[in-house]
Simulated scan of single mutants.
Amino acid sequence: MAAAALQGLLVPHLLPERCYDELFLRFNLLHVPCLKILVSKGLGIAIVAGSLMVKLPQVFKILGAKSAMGLSFHSILLELLALTGTMVYSVANGFPFSAWGEALFLMLQTVTIGFLTQHFGGRTAQGISFLVLYFALLCLLLSPLTPQAMVTLLQATNVPAIIISRLLQAATNYRNGHTGQLSAVTVFLLFGGSLARIFTSVQETGDPLMALTYVVSSLCNGVIAGQLLYYWQVPAGVEARKKRE
């Protein structure tokens, strides 16, 4: 009975039946192809589950400080473009949710951060307009009205969008001499998640465009993580910048 329950849990969500037989009935624990599937699916589900709270520390930090100092709104917009491209491209190609699901949850959290950046910058009306326009555009992109060629082009823009968004944030950090309200927890989780996604995207989708996106994302997230470590002891504010100068 327990074996049947385990099989119902694993097949087909984590493993195809042939791999369940290899690993749990024949105890062939060195069956590399099936181990890759198990690790990839497990990582994918863990990344999707973790993405539910990856950017919440950033949201709470902004709300607690009632300030979005140090966050670049243009960087947020470009990151949102990349997340939207991944999500729309994955849906259009029928990729499994475990291969891209975090893009949905990160998108919702990034939209929230974008609105808070505008709101605490004294531009609440613009923040509301941003929300309305974004979700209207998202509905259009997910509809059958959007041709496949445009969806592929949107995904292809992810690489430059990610690079530019991280460069903008890195430039903002350098210019300020601190990382402001940037959350270290969020940055390091994004860095680790993008590294893991390189493996899962190759294993689950076999799509080189998806894999390249996560390679570039890992490198760029690593730059921001490095800045956080460099500016770790520097408090946010103009006084800190003057002290460094």
Rank of each mutant, 00 (worst) to 15 (best):
A3F: 15
A4R: 14
A4K: 15
A5V: 10
L9T: 02
L9Y: 09
V11T: 01
P12K: 07
H13A: 13
E17Y: 06
R18F: 10
C19E: 14
D21C: 02
E22P: 00
L23D: 09
L23E: 07
F24Q: 08
R26T: 09
R26W: 01
F27I: 02
F27W: 13
L35E: 01
V39Q: 05
S40Y: 11
I45R: 06
A46W: 13
I47N: 05
G50P: 12
S51R: 07
S51K: 04
L52E: 09
K55G: 07
Q58A: 14
V59K: 03
V59A: 02
L63P: 02
G64T: 02
A65D: 09
G70V: 04
G70P: 05
G70H: 03
L71M: 13
H74S: 11
H74R: 13
S75L: 04
L77F: 05
L77G: 01
L78K: 11
L83P: 05
L83H: 07
G85S: 03
T86L: 12
V88A: 06
S90Q: 06
N93L: 15
G94C: 10
P96I: 11
F97D: 06
F97E: 11
A99D: 10
A99V: 11
W100I: 12
G101S: 04
E102T: 03
L104D: 04
L106K: 00
L108D: 06
T110S: 05
T112E: 11
I113R: 05
G114W: 08
L116K: 12
T117H: 13
Q118M: 13
Q118E: 14
H119T: 00
F120L: 06
F120I: 06
G122R: 06
T124P: 05
I128A: 14
S129I: 04
F130M: 15
F130V: 04
L133W: 07
F135A: 03
L137R: 11
C139W: 10
P147M: 01
P147F: 01
A149R: 12
M150K: 00
T157M: 05
T157P: 00
V159Q: 05
I162L: 14
I162E: 04
R166N: 15
L168S: 03
A170K: 02
Y174Q: 10
G177I: 02
H178I: 05
T179N: 15
Q181K: 13
L182G: 09
L182H: 03
A184N: 11
V185N: 08
T186R: 10
V187N: 11
V187H: 09
V187I: 15
V187K: 06
F188I: 15
F188K: 10
L189S: 15
G192N: 04
S194D: 12
A196M: 14
I198Q: 07
T200E: 09
Q203Y: 07
E204R: 09
D207A: 01
D207H: 03
P208V: 12
T213P: 00
Y214E: 12
Y214D: 05
V216C: 02
S217M: 12
S217G: 02
S217F: 14
A225Q: 10
A225L: 09
Q227V: 07
Q227P: 08
Y231G: 01
P235E: 09
P235A: 04
V238N: 10
A240C: 10
K242F: 12
